[in-house]
Design a protein around this nucleic acid. Structure first.
Length: 196
DNA sequence: CTTACGATCATCT
DNA sequence: GATGATCGTAAGC
């Protein structure tokens, strides 16, 4: 109890993508935006691999968009989708091996005031329970693409000393291929998990 | 409560 | 020219 949070370093991310995804659950996503510090508990993630994963952006090989997935571990991969939304991923695996974990939902813990300002007129329970909602509430856009998330800068992740919890898994959301892989992981029973 | 659909644009074919 | 790793609203039960 009362342990000082420690930032997750390169070695944490330089591992198998599915393992990194599971291990990110319960960790703290920290966003520093000017004077504001926002923080939340990661409660839902998805793993995306490379050439053997048809749902992955990296499936067809490197392109300008997916370049971060092929780069070094522990960097932000942020892309724009559906004409409206940004999605935040954290890259995994060593350079040359594509992989990323999509952060789909978090439980707000700190900086609620700023999150509410960035996403007005929604209940706190709907502030960050989806990948596009989360980036909006944290003020994350493509300007943070490729940021090194192992440094205490604008965006990083720390561990926590919380007790263990049950992890549930399912097929990933919004994909048409690769449904057989159960690579969506979430904190069982947590009310901030997206509806999918 | 659940399901259906339109908005809107970067990216790739 | 088609397609989404989505969301909010509207309508149905």
């Amino acid at each position: 109890m009362g342990m000082k949070p420690h930032i997750l370093l390169r070695d944490f991310y330089a591992r198998d993508t599915v393992k990194v995804a599971k291990d990110l659950l319960g960790k703290r996503l920290v966003r520093v935006k000017g004077k504001n510090r926002m923080e939340g508990r990661i409660v839902e993630v998805e793993a995306y691999r490379g050439l053997e994963d048809p749902a992955s952006h990296a499936f067809r090989g490197p392109t300008p968009r997916n370049a971060p997935m092929f780069g070094g571990p522990g960097h932000a991969y942020i892309y724009f989708t559906y004409g409206n939304h940004y999605c935040l991923n954290i890259t995994t695996q060593e350079v040359g091996t594509p992989g990323a974990v999509l952060i789909r939902a978090m439980q707000p813990l700190e900086g609620l005031r700023e999150m509410r300002r960035l996403r007005p007129k929604v209940l706190d329970s709907n502030l960050t329970n989806g990948p596009g909602k989360l980036t909006k509430a944290l003020g994350i856009d493509k300007s943070l693409n490729e940021v090194d998330m192992t440094k205490r800068g604008e965006l990083f992740v720390t561990d926590s000393d919380e007790a263990t919890f049950d992890v549930a898994k399912s097929a990933r959301v919004g994909i048409s291929q690769g449904r057989d892989r159960l690579w969506r992981f979430y904190v069982a029973g947590n009310s901030y998990v997206s509806k999918g």
